[in-house]
């Protein structure tokens, strides 16, 4: 057990616990706050993987901006038990099936990784050795190897922005 191990287990436990609390807490505002904690824990994992840029961007974008908007909307909606709409049984069933499928595929990936891929066997983290997450390397990779997907995603964002402006203008 060294420091990285301890941190890893602590962060993993924190992530799982907060993720569970997101689903289990009755109050939607509390759910959002737990979700923010999940993001923090995941950022911690990124730091352990020596991907500081990803860690910080995760905090800025998800915890700092998107979750604020989430919180914003939920606070304004004032959701509580009394106003909760009745949910269709079919909807619940579809949700369970979709979630179950996702769970199976994720477990499968982990299981396969443990058995088939020699690279990943018994490796919990990269323990601060990887360098792909550093800002220089990430930038170079993004703008050389993955330049087309990068540009396509930026076009996607642009179109989303234009769409938002048009929706906003209608009223």
């Amino acid at each position: 057990m060294n420091l990285v191990h301890i941190l890893f287990w602590f962060l993993s436990a924190l992530t799982l616990f907060s993720a569970l609390m997101v689903i289990l807490s009755k109050n939607p505002v509390h759910s959002v706050l737990w979700l923010i904690l999940v993001f923090f824990a995941i950022s911690g994992h990124y730091v352990l993987l020596n991907a500081q840029f990803l860690a910080i961007v995760n905090l800025i974008v998800y915890a700092g901006a998107i979750m604020v908007l989430f919180l914003f909307v939920i606070m304004l909606l004032n959701l509580n038990k009394e106003t909760e709409p009745k949910k269709n049984v079919w909807m619940k069933l579809a949700g369970t099936i979709a979630g179950g499928c996702f769970l199976i595929s994720v477990t499968n990936v982990i299981y396969n990784a443990q058995t088939s891929s020699a690279e990943l066997v018994n490796k919990t983290t990269l323990m601060g050795k990887g360098s792909i997450g550093l800002i220089e390397n990430l930038g170079k990779t993004l703008f050389t190897d993955y330049v087309i997907p990068f540009e396509i995603s930026s076009v996607l964002f642009l179109s989303a922005m234009v769409g938002a402006v048009i929706i906003g203008k209608k009223k």
């Binding site: 910080i56 905090l59 700092g64 901006a65 550093l134």
Partner: peptide, 21 residues
């Protein structure tokens, strides 16, 4: 840290939670 400026941004963006909560 080699992302000092971004770190500050992250902290600033989280700062709003104190007020909102």
């Amino acid at each position: 840290i080699n992302i000092g400026v971004l770190y500050i941004f992250a902290v600033v963006s989280i700062g709003v939670y104190g007020i909102m909560i």
